[in-house]
Design a protein around this nucleic acid. Structure first.
Lengths: 250, 250
DNA sequence: CTTTTATTTTGATTAAAGTCAATAAAAATA
DNA sequence: TATTTTTATTGACTTTAATCAAAATAAAAG
């Protein structure tokens, strides 16, 4: 199901040192340049690995917060669900990304995290992470940057939801997916989406029919090619023009 | 311009100990229960105070990140501005709240912060905060909770922008304002908004005319009374019903 | 205090997206 | 493989909010 040009090269350094911190801690560790001793401390932090089958929950709203989760493989969505049935997908999460940051606030998860394909995560007990980050300032700083980046990302989504039209939103979404696949060594112009039109719609603040129509429109214009969940971007530049100069970092 | 029933009682403890950490550090310090020595360390952190006149910038997009800002008094908005002129108000900020969290990510401010009335902030140099939080774990944890809460708040705004109608959005906004005024000792049913209809609209993903119509609608229904920026909530319960069971914590 | 500028309200019209409905296609299950 | 269920597309129509425009009100500046 995954594209084929995936490379684990980036993770080799960590892989040699610690069994579980392999790709899961890429996000948190690699950019800070830890020494062997420091990485060893971290090895203790991420002792536990978890597999979640497609459709399964990594965590549910209201349950006690124990650990952050680093996505080792797979694809997940997070969504907030209100009593009245209103639902909003707040994010899609792929390899190397960190989940559970919202739960620190009230020691309780504020959203559901559901696997959109069989996935693996590493548990990072949060109290341990805080302990260790006291002795490794660069790790603490790195963690702060990750939290901050989530805030910046959310502000980008707010801009999208607050000021963009359906087609612009979809273009923005596709470019974001494209970039994130590219970072992980997959094709930036040819990929399979893991989520349904309804889930895309929820994330983009649109109904599934509107999402479907926007896909069809972009295909008519020969900007993308759509076969169900398989997307090919035929003209990256024109797709970027569609969203009108907005950066695709959301 | 501010409502009159304001009390500084909550801040007295800190005020005795350190001149500037008075109300500015309420958010960050008070709930962690620091001892005198710890508060003294913090006094060094928040040495610098700044006044911003109405319409003035606290910080601008793209400028180097140096410090977080704790609002000591006044009222500010933050907004992201795109090259094509698209603008989105990402938040309104009142006494005791912390600004600049988005800037940690790339060592650069990602939004403008503009005073909507004459305001005072305390600068909290971020590197110092990180240093000190190493020796005061409870402060570090408190800071993590604040960042996490910002993420939760943003998810709430995403839900609002993604799934609520104009009138529901405005009801949600008013209830949020009401709650935040109440926390600070002001009336929860009678207050002056500091922002224009256009700024409310930008925050809620609506045009100013739509915001105005929604105000008029709620007034017609005798749920609120509107006199320009002066709002009276006549029926808090019905206002809550308007937004359909969604919590007003955003 | 008067003039100018900015803000707010309201109406008429247009554009965009939602809703309802039918069909088709894909995926999951028996 | 056949059947059921889920997901996606498309059309017709409705609702919602945006746009355009004018007037009224409030705030700021001279």
């Amino acid at each position: 199901m995954l594209p084929e040009r995936f490379s684990t090269k980036d993770f080799d350094v960590a892989q040699i040192r610690s069994s579980c911190s392999s790709c899961s801690l890429r996000e948190l560790c690699l950019p800070v340049g830890l020494n062997d001793e420091e990485v060893e401390s971290l090895g203790e932090v991420v002792a536990h690995k978890r597999k979640i089958l497609r459709g399964g929950y990594l965590h549910r709203t209201g349950t006690k917060f124990q650990a952050l989760y680093a996505v080792k493989s797979g694809f997940l969505k997070t969504c907030v669900l209100e009593e009245d049935g209103r639902q909003q997908v707040t994010g899609f999460h792929m390899t190397g990304e960190l989940l559970g940051l919202d739960a620190i606030s009230a020691d309780m998860h504020t959203c559901d995290a559901i696997a959109l394909e069989d996935s693996e995560v590493c548990e990072i007990p949060f109290s341990k992470l805080e302990d260790i980050s006291r002795t490794i300032p660069s790790l603490m700083h790195r963690f702060h940057k990750i939290m901050s980046r989530e805030i910046v990302r959310d502000h980008g989504v707010m801009l999208l939801l607050g000021s963009m039209k359906a087609e612009e939103r979809l273009a923005s979404f596709l470019l974001n997916m494209s970039r994130r696949f590219a970072i992980r060594g997959y094709s930036e112009t040819d990929f399979n989406l893991r989520m349904t039109r309804e889930e895309i719609g929820s994330y983009l603040g649109l109904k599934l029919e509107t999402v479907s129509r926007a896909f069809s429109k972009l295909q008519e214009e020969a900007i993308i090619s759509v076969n169900n969940k398989h997307i090919q971007i035929l003209d990256l530049e024109r797709l970027k023009l569609k969203m009108g100069n907005i950066s695709c970092s959301t």
